[in-house]
């Protein structure tokens, strides 16, 4: 379904639009879902400090609909995995992920969650959380800037709105 912008509406001089009720509902739900993204804050190291900065007024994620108000995984839509995930922590991260309701999205923040980062040759650090979780957006950096968090959030919203996430194709 083609997305209708404000300009399209302004060009219309009367007339009417035809659509299927199901498609209209899908369009509305996807749009609504993308604009009220409640991320779960999961911070284990320095990327978590940058995430706090991201939540503050300078970057202000609230204006994009990313609200840091989910205190429990039961309310959360997305998870910012920020910081080194050790092999022991991986189990706990998976428990949190399984507690989140569908649809749920994962954002890998920083070099450690992408590949192990500085601890790539260590025995105790997971070599990227995509070994255990389906990651939708990666943010590079060690640690990344708050602006990169915002861009990742907007990118995820775009993916949700355009139905580009494979495992939730056609999910309502």
């Amino acid at each position: 379904m083609k997305e209708i912008t404000f300009e399209d509406f302004s060009k219309l001089e009367g007339g009417f639009l035809l659509t299927k009720a199901k498609e209209l509902a899908h369009w509305l739900i996807k749009k609504g879902r993308s604009k009220s993204l409640w991320p779960l804050t999961f911070a284990t190291s320095c990327c978590g400090i940058e995430m706090m900065s991201f939540g503050a007024s300078k970057t202000d994620p609230d204006r994009a609909g990313i609200l840091f108000i989910a205190d429990s995984p039961r309310y959360a839509d997305a998870i910012f995995v920020s910081g080194t995930i050790t092999k022991k922590m991986a189990n706990r991260l998976l428990v949190l992920y399984n507690q989140m309701p569908n649809p749920k999205y994962v954002i890998a923040v920083g070099a450690c969650t992408i590949s192990g980062g500085l601890y790539h040759h260590s025995y105790s650090v997971l070599l990227g959380i995509d070994k255990i979780l389906p990651v939708d957006v990666y943010i590079h950096g060690c640690p990344p800037r708050p602006e990169q968090f915002l861009e990742a959030g907007l990118k995820l919203q775009e993916l949700i709105k355009n139905d580009k996430i494979e495992r939730y194709k056609g999910y309502i």
Binding site: K87, A90, N91, L94, Y97, N98, L126, L127, K131, I132, L133, P134
Partner: peptide, 9 residues
């Protein structure tokens, strides 16, 4: 590369 037993979503 070890991630634990059955540790997958």
């Amino acid at each position: 590369n070890w991630t634990g037993t059955d540790l997958r979503w």
